[in-house]
Amino acid sequence: MALAQFIVNGLLVGALFAAVAVGFALIWGVVDIINLAHGEMVMLGGYTAYWALALTTGTARGGPLVVLATLPLVVGVLFAVGYLLQRVLVKRVMGTDVFLTLLVTFGASIAIQQLALRAWTANPRSIQVELADPSLVLGGVVVPKMKLVAFLGAFVLTGALWAFLQRSRTGRAIRAVSQNPEAAALVGIDVEHTRATTFGLSSAIAGAVGVFVATILNVQPQMGLIYTLKSFVIVVFGGVGSIPGALLGGLLLGSVEETVAGVISSQWTLAVSFSLLIVLLIVKPNGLFGQEASE
């Protein structure tokens, strides 16, 4: 029974990491940038929700619906942050040395962290969700309700992104830019705008995940790094540019880590997940869904 509990915990957390990684994968696949400031979008999303609640209601607490009501604001704010990050900063190093692009996004991540530290101090903050009965028990497995909401939210966000890419006009433009930027410009797509939009969408999803993180854990200025690192592992795991791969990779990584933490010790989680990554890269160098490199 303990094992089932660990796996359920892992899936619940893994879905959040997966949703963050999906955006990371999208930027990597479409804009060809490894965005080391991606985790900071989770942090900014969490703070946006926290302050929206704290400033309007006086306290960072509320019922589940009140908390979920901050999502549209967070999505809008983080879309703008991501859009501008590409349009103002990352655009300048596009097509240069990969080292330079890493340096620029790493620099952006540090700058955002330090600004957050100045503005909001290092104190962890969290959003208190008021629920009469915070947990469900299903067949002996405890499922915290807010984690379940976060889990479903992560799926909804990922599914919405997937549908948007497949069905909308902008989604088609994003896929076109990812497959052949020159041809995209040829048929009249504004490539720079499309790349910035991709950054915006990916950041918006990461920010929305930040809202859930603020309710089930907490937010603090330096929380971003772990999300960037895990996104990297998940994306390499699932195959660069593959949304289903990132989703599956996130769920898998979450359950492996929780199981390792529960059965052995939490000190072993990173060692085990990175070892698993190395083994996978030897067996399947393109990742689980690697053959479909740009969908």
């Binding site: 076109a176 497959q179 041809a183």
Partner: peptide, 9 residues
């Protein structure tokens, strides 16, 4: 264009 300019996927 001269180069292959289809969207392969």
């Amino acid at each position: 264009l001269q180069d292959a300019s289809v969207f392969p996927n």
